[in-house]
Design a protein around this nucleic acid. Sequence first.
DNA 1: TAGTGGTCTAGACCACAGC
DNA 2: CTGTGGTCTAGACCACTAA
Lengths: 242, 242
Amino acid sequence: MTRHAAIRAQIEARILSGALRPGDKLPSEAELVAEHGVARMTASRALADLVAAGLVVRRRKAGSFVAVPRAEESLFGIPDLRATLGPGHAHAVLHRATRAATAADKARLGALPRGARVLALQVRHMAGAVPQAIEDRLINLAAVPEAAAEDFGAAPPGSWLLERVPWTEAEHRIGALAADAATAALLAVAEGAPCLVLDRLSRREGLPVTAVRFTYPGDRHAFTGRSTPRLREAPQPGMRIS
Amino acid sequence: MTRHAAIRAQIEARILSGALRPGDKLPSEAELVAEHGVARMTASRALADLVAAGLVVRRRKAGSFVAVPRAEESLFGIPDLRATLGPGHAHAVLHRATRAATAADKARLGALPRGARVLALQVRHMAGAVPQAIEDRLINLAAVPEAAAEDFGAAPPGSWLLERVPWTEAEHRIGALAADAATAALLAVAEGAPCLVLDRLSRREGLPVTAVRFTYPGDRHAFTGRSTPRLREAPQPGMRIS
DNA sequence: TAGTGGTCTAGACCACAGC
DNA sequence: CTGTGGTCTAGACCACTAA
């Protein structure tokens, strides 16, 4: 491993483990130079890589800090609904339950220890009086214990989680399904109407954090995005839901 | 503009304009040093940025070369169907026409000069005897004149284009639609069945190149992906269609 | 084996934004 | 004003691999 990669890995591990939290100050280049006995360009390279990875922000004179994830640029470039729908957006928690993980829960979240507890949520997102999406979410309380005491009245669970839990891996699936009777009723569409479905499973260092399914009425939503060849100084703008 | 950015921009312009084609050799670091009067690290940084942008590949002793886009990692990480479906995949051109751009064509491709000619294609993708997708594509012949003489028997148009035409910008839309009668017949699904629809418009330096709509049966396909925080040395694996 | 890229050093000057 | 990051230099050694 190269020296800049070693420095980078050390800092990255502290961020991903939670020892360093979003907003915390990192060592300055000069401190890294003294600590690791390298040239400043080497320390600078390590921090620059962390910036490219989105884990760190740097400000002149102020220093380097653990990046605070912005809700607008969620996983895979698919933002959460708060940013998408804007001020007219409202959400309501339809169901909320904590329970020992069932077999079905384990199938969604992946391997969980025996007796693991999960928080199951169903949230409906509205734009005015028009239903825009149904969110079915499972949260692994072993990974996010503070979720048990949260009512998600102010921020929907996606935004709430994004600002608190660093993630290291996510799996996504975007498909199309016909609305079943329950979904159709909640979304105010005809039974059998085409719906866009986004499934996402997020992990932190192998530990499942949350599994979520968003169901959007096919006539009201699409994922849109712009992309350019990935440039270091122009990160991918990502997808929007529109 | 910094010196490494200037060197990078010069090379990038030559690649995007087509003056340098995929596979062409770029100046070595030593040549860039002599040409621009900079230190080697500065030239190296310019080339490293181009590698990060995916425009360049570098091999020790051999040199730096314009990257040949791989069909497996298409725009937005959504690969073309050849790579997805593997050896069992076959495609057939159902319709093929060159014509002066109609109003509908211009609506899909965006601004075109008067009298612009386009190639319209409809292609069906199969896995064995099972239809997997319908591809409706428009190609701007002003941007890709050699497409007029291509029959797309060997490679489907997506792969063919990707290997020949550099792109600088793309817009995407993923939605869900009910299959109309014609689509249902081609995909061998019931009329009204939910379908996943991917629309993509690609441009090269503002010039529309191609607009395409893929329609997938909702019960046979989904876009799946894994993602990690974007690391310079571990590029996004991207989506797969499965 | 020689050319090329990959990394690192120990300096330097500058721009910028907090203090 | 000063700490911090951003960039650049002119070297150096090494690793890899294509010739």
